[in-house]
Amino acid sequence: MKLYPKFIAWWLAKHSVIAGALLVFYLIIGALTEYRVFDLGFIAMIFNLIMVLLPSTWAMTGRVFPLSMGVTRKQFFLMGQLLKLFCLIIVTVVLLQFAPYPPIATICSMFAATCSGELLGALSTRFGKKGMIIFTILCGCAGGVGGFMFSQGVEMTVTLMSLMTLPALPVISVLVGCCETAASWLIYRKMEVQ
């Protein structure tokens, strides 16, 4: 099965320019506000943003070419996975330069982020702007609820407490990512081309 790596590379290069500009923008902002720019958390946050945007753009506008030029949906989906993998690898490599130890939790959360981006893009093709907004709100809620509960020190059962601990979180991130990817595939399977 051909996955057209050259096409992915070309598309990525085209859009990396924007991603790179975003990065530079944030770095400047960070420097101006004297925030600890090279803090792992800060960089991860920026990367997360890019990691979400690239796959979603791929689904929203990148699909124009492959799907109308004879590529099957299965191939397109797998190409999307390659794209995500590629981004993940680059970002991991960069992060490793700044981290004293392999930031597994960060990387897992970025995996979840890219999958979210992919699902966001897929939803937009099927459900339009409404779908995107609903999904974004849902994600926001999921994060907000968890954070709120934590901050309020609400009584939690042992299971929930253990979920919040470090080893469990990355696993959950990966699981969530996989579910989102599966959902994306369900949408891609029967996508109509324009």
Partner: peptide, 22 residues
């Protein structure tokens, strides 16, 4: 018009994509 507004791809993008995909 693409999803979020104007189709900003250029003529040469279509030609390039065609070259890579057909």
């Amino acid at each position: 018009i693409l999803f979020m507004g104007q189709n900003t791809y250029k003529v040469r993008d279509y030609l390039r994509a065609a070259k890579l995909l057909y």
